[in-house]
């Protein structure tokens, strides 16, 4: 496929997009697996979630604990 005199610019543009998106997807999957493994480990140890402390529970609820 002949992309003319500026082929290098075209291919490197597509390459950087491909690499960046691949890196994003890899990071998302690795992060997901890490969080799931940590959660499974904690639950296997019988750790239960505490009811949130009322002092600023609405804040916690809004942004913190889920």
């Amino acid at each position: 496929m002949d992309l003319g005199p500026h082929a290098a610019f075209i291919w490197s543009s597509y390459a950087i997009v491909g690499v960046t998106i691949a890196a994003l997807i890899t990071w998302l999957y690795a992060d997901g697996r890490r969080q799931a493994a940590a959660l499974k480990d904690l639950e296997a140890r019988g750790v239960k979630r505490r009811t949130s402390v009322p002092s600023h529970a609405d804040d916690n609820h809004a942004a913190g604990s889920l």
Binding site: I21, L24, I25, L28, Y29, D31, G32, Q35, A36, A38, L39, L42, E43, R45, V47, K48, R49, R50, G64, S65, L66
Partner: peptide, 30 residues
């Protein structure tokens, strides 16, 4: 669509992260 798929996946990760954090805090409190 790719963006929304990645955003949804990142949100799922974040929900898990906050559950892990809550359980760890609970474990320490216990």
């Amino acid at each position: 669509l790719l963006f929304f798929a990645m955003h949804m996946k990142a949100m799922r990760n974040e929900v898990l992260r906050r559950r892990v954090k809550a359980l760890r805090l609970s474990d320490i409190a216990r």
